[in-house]
């Protein structure tokens, strides 16, 4: 599988993490942090702390636990991972290893107990809930194992809602949704509801919805788990193309070994910690 973009700046070791310590300190010290108004990216009136561009997407020293006292269980323990722009990263590991917790943090759906989360160079764990919502709205597309399409809407409306969420003033959203579905070979299924589509078609609609509005980041949770071999391969190829042709940053959590040939990098988690990382050359 050709990969036109290979990572060359993966933060693999603690030495590089240490080199980022200055930037982390910037975040910790409000007096020194650069507070930028990013009106083009966030809701009006929202300001965020922005740090150096090497923190495009990732977590730094992140720990997440559930429960209290003796019942406390760590889902992630002091994990530091950075994902470079224009790469497809595969996160693997056994059940309970913390894959979904990691994805939830990257998707601004969960805040770490300790450590930092960066999305498009913004330290999102310092943001209020509205700020995180705005980041998800503008920056992140999600693809889920269970598709999570709106059951009462047609395929085209499901995609159009993606455009609507990212830009409520967008008046051409139906045309754009149709164009996107055409690109994914679903031009003749525009008016069908999700329960009238095959699992593979549903996942393609879900990917189209995730791509609506052109977010720079795609987070996919077991996107091929519910699909047969051919449909799964189609989804792998679609997401790979998003990296190669549009420079998107894709993080896929999956047990599916087929992803290895499409990924630039594979990260293996075990018991809430990074067990292994490798570049797929």
């Amino acid at each position: 599988m050709p990969k036109s973009r290979l990572m060359n700046t993966v933060c693999e070791d603690s030495g590089e993490l240490a080199s980022n310590a200055v930037e982390v300190d910037l975040l910790k010290s409000p007096a020194n942090s650069r507070v930028l108004a990013v009106e083009d990216r966030l809701e009006p009136g929202l300001t965020v702390h922005e740090v150096a561009s090497s923190h495009f997407l990732g977590v730094e020293g992140a720990s997440v636990s559930f429960g209290k006292g003796s019942a406390r269980v760590f889902a992630l323990r002091d994990v530091s991972l950075m994902f470079e722009r224009g790469t497809l990263s595969l996160v693997m590991g056994p059940s309970g290893s913390g894959k979904t917790t990691l994805l939830s943090m990257l998707g601004c759906l969960l805040s770490p107990d300790e450590g930092s989360v960066f999305v498009d160079d913004v330290a999102v764990n310092q943001l209020a809930e509205t700020g995180k919502t705005a980041i998800r709205q503008k920056k992140i597309g999600f693809v889920f194992q269970a598709f999570r399409l709106f059951h009462s809407l047609s395929a085209i409306d499901n995609v159009a809602i993606g455009f609507e969420l990212r830009d409520p003033k967008q008046s051409q959203r139906l045309e754009m949704a149709r164009h996107l579905l055409n690109q994914f070979g679903l031009g003749d299924k525009c008016n069908q509801e999700p329960n009238e589509l095959s699992p593979g078609e549903r996942q393609r609609v879900a990917v189209a919805r995730a791509l609506a509005g052109n977010p720079p980041i795609l987070l996919a949770d077991e996107p091929t788990a519910s699909l047969d071999a051919q449909a799964g391969r189609n989804i792998c190829q679609i997401l790979r193309n998003q990296v190669d042709e549009h420079g998107k940053t894709v993080v896929v959590v999956s047990h599916d070994p087929r992803w290895r040939e499409f990924a630039d990098r594979t990260i293996t988690l075990c018991d809430g910690q990074v067990e292994h990382q490798e570049k797929n050359l």
Binding site: Q137, R148, L165, R166
Partner: peptide
Amino acid sequence: IEEYATLKALGAPK
């Protein structure tokens, strides 16, 4: 309710 959760995950404000 799952659809509302999805909406919120996709960035829909409250």
